[in-house]
């Protein structure tokens, strides 16, 4: 059984209108529980359409979407429950903040789930802890916070529902490096603690290499690959043909390997690069 499984998923927008367009075609993928998946693809590749199926915002034109082995559209009246178990954080989620205090905003989701006040408080505190929102901020208006803080409050609002699957659509878009690192580090810690499934839609191959355990690549409405980050990034030429830039550090190692230096081509993160170069430099010392 998989946390998320798509079976021949196809979705067509605007059926029987002049704007009819098939956004995703025959996508089949099985994602085991506990993965931290980087979802990669150009704008228009179908990745947003795919993730909107996972929490039932879109209903497949054909094919199935299963969460924990269960077809989410088996009983359409129950679809609201799916939205609690698969939490979706949209792009620029801070635009959706609306409450008068940070606490109330984070509490909105769990309150709607019909939980007791005590349970809601517990979950709000837990979510604020995961996202690094200090208790001093709880009574402030969310609109007085910095951009990075607002976004973390919005993410906390989804985390507070304790979803089994957390999907984030470019959670670091528009943030500066400090804001980006803070969100990604917090997500990593959250994932390690909760051991749930996290999907991170990102344009940054560097971030996917650094944070994710597996990568899902969409291209022109079809699934190009779903595999470990290493196996996906090894297909450099194909990725580049799709216009997806591989990390700069990987490009450096490609050049080094091509120049006959004894290093692997498959180096995707700074840490791996440092290890690989340390080893190669030691080898150089012995040979000399």
């Amino acid at each position: 059984m998989y946390a998320i499984e798509a079976q021949n998923l196809t979705y067509t927008y605007g059926i029987k209108t002049p704007f009819e367009k098939t956004a995703i075609r025959d996508v089949s993928v099985q994602i085991p529980a506990g993965e931290f998946v980087g979802v990669i693809g150009h704008t228009g590749s179908g990745k947003s359409t795919l993730i909107q199926h996972i929490n039932g915002l879109l209903r497949p034109t054909s094919g199935k979407l299963l969460l924990n082995g269960k077809d989410i559209w088996e009983n359409p009246k129950e679809i609201r429950k799916v939205r609690f178990s698969a939490g979706l954080v949209f792009q620029y989620p801070e635009h959706q903040l609306f409450e008068t205090t940070v606490y109330k905003d984070i509490a909105f989701g769990p309150t709607n789930m019909g939980l007791s006040e005590e349970e809601v408080r517990l979950r709000v505190e837990e979510a604020a802890e995961f996202t690094g929102i200090s208790s001093a901020l709880m009574d402030q208006s969310p609109f007085e916070l910095s951009g990075g803080q607002k976004r973390r409050v919005a993410i906390a609002g989804v985390i507070a529902m304790r979803p089994e699957v957390l999907i984030l659509d470019e959670p670091t878009a528009g943030l500066d490096p400090r804001g980006r690192d803070k969100i990604l580090d917090r997500l990593r810690r959250y994932h390690q603690a909760q051991k749930n499934t996290v999907l991170l839609v990102s344009h940054s191959m560097e971030d996917v290499a650094e944070y994710c355990t597996s990568a899902l690549v969409m291209n022109r409405g079809t699934l190009f690959a779903y595999d470990t980050v290493e196996n996906v990034f090894c297909r450099t030429e194909e990725l580049e043909q799709m216009g997806l830039a591989i990390p700069a550090i990987t490009q450096v190692f490609h050049r080094l390997a091509a120049a006959g230096i004894p290093v692997s081509r498959n180096v995707f993160t700074m840490d791996a690069a440092k290890q690989a170069l340390s080893a190669a430099l030691e080898g150089r010392g012995r040979n000399a």
Partner: peptide, 11 residues
Amino acid sequence: AGLDVPQTTDL
């Protein structure tokens, strides 16, 4: 200053 350097420069 809270900024990144390119990976190449970092290496």
